[in-house]
Write a protein that binds this DNA or RNA. Structure first.
Length: 294
DNA sequence: AGACTACCCCGTACTCTACT
DNA sequence: AGTAGAGTACGGGGTAGTCT
């Protein structure tokens, strides 16, 4: 309800389904659909959304034959060299964490196991799309609007996106870059594996920046994040199953909860701050109460 | 403790129909 | 004619429960 006047994901980016190969019964006997080896006239692409794939990774790359005899229904899947986000078509889990958005800068051809998400213009950074595609809002929306096994195109297009993304996207993009560079060190084999806790914190920072753009009332944001309590996040190299500790009651926005100020304070000093609220904070709290009169 | 079984979850392949 | 969405089938893998 709060986001009903927000733009939809379909307005921000072009979303479509990948291609289908022709059925085996109609496949010419000498035809090759795809191969792990390089194909003459083939293009690089992805066939399956590999199980256990993490959101900073890409599926196994293969060579795909785009011949119309082999691919009768190209949809958006045969377009290559256009940067895109790839969503899983089949849900990742039955839990609220059901989406995985992959960042494909090269623009591979993909089958109908994927949904393609391509920016409508040059203004929208791919990192912002990635953050929105993996956000708690997108996951919660998809989960609450479809209990089906698949993430259907129409439903995904209707996911609300924030209005103010143009001006404030920089912080989100920065947070995404920080997470991606930490989780995929350049000299992967030589570097020590990244600290899971640090990675978790960096991804939470991405969530926090995205939620800042959505600008939900604190109580509503808390309600949203509590939706994921007890459900293991998918596609990340660390264990994460809740945003706030079970006994944590205050409704502070995630970015504030994560802030260094909070980090350094004890639960007690937080309580003190809460009681001796600044005029600004008091006004913010009143606004939140107004938004939820009940 | 180990073997076995049934069941469920999930991903993939393929097909069909309604709609534009 | 092409696309979106739904339906069916099937198999891999994990796991809880039971049996030996």
């Amino acid at each position: 309800m709060w986001c009903r006047d927000y733009p939809s994901f379909g307005e921000l980016a072009h979303i479509g389904k990948g291609f289908d190969f022709v059925g085996q019964d109609n496949l010419p006997s000498d035809a090759v659909t795809f191969s792990v080896r390089r194909l003459r006239d083939g293009v690089p692409g992805f066939v399956n959304f590999d199980r256990g794939l993490q959101v900073h990774q890409l599926p196994k790359r293969v060579w795909i034959n785009l011949d119309p005899k082999v691919i009768p229904t190209p949809r958006t899947g045969t377009t290559t060299k256009v940067p895109q986000i790839l969503w899983n078509y089949a849900r990742a889990k039955r839990s609220p964490w059901r989406l995985k958005g992959l960042l494909d800068r090269e623009g591979h051809a993909v089958t109908s196991r994927f949904l393609t998400v391509r920016p409508n213009n040059d203004i929208v950074p791919l990192e912002l799309l990635w953050a929105l595609a993996n956000s708690p809002i997108a996951n919660a929306f998809a989960h609450s609007h479809s209990m089906k096994r698949d993430n259907l195109t129409g439903m995904m297009r209707s996911i609300p996106v924030p209005i103010v993304w143009e001006t404030d996207a920089a912080a989100t993009v920065q947070a995404v870059k920080a997470y991606l560079s930490a989780v995929t060190p350049e000299m992967e084999k030589l570097s020590p594996s990244p600290d899971p806790q640090q990675l978790c914190r960096l991804l939470l920072q991405v969530d926090a920046e995205v939620l800042k753009l959505y600008d939900l009332p604190p109580r509503l944001e808390r309600q949203l994040l509590d939706y994921f309590r007890g459900h293991e996040r998918q596609g990340v190299p660390f264990f994460f199953d809740r945003y706030y500790p079970a006994d944590y009651e205050p409704c502070f926005p995630l970015h504030e909860y994560l802030s260094d100020a909070y980090e350094q304070s004890t639960a007690g000093s937080m309580r003190d701050r809460h009681e001796s609220a600044t005029p600004e904070m008091a006004a913010a709290m009143e606004a939140a109460v107004d938004a939820f009169p009940e």
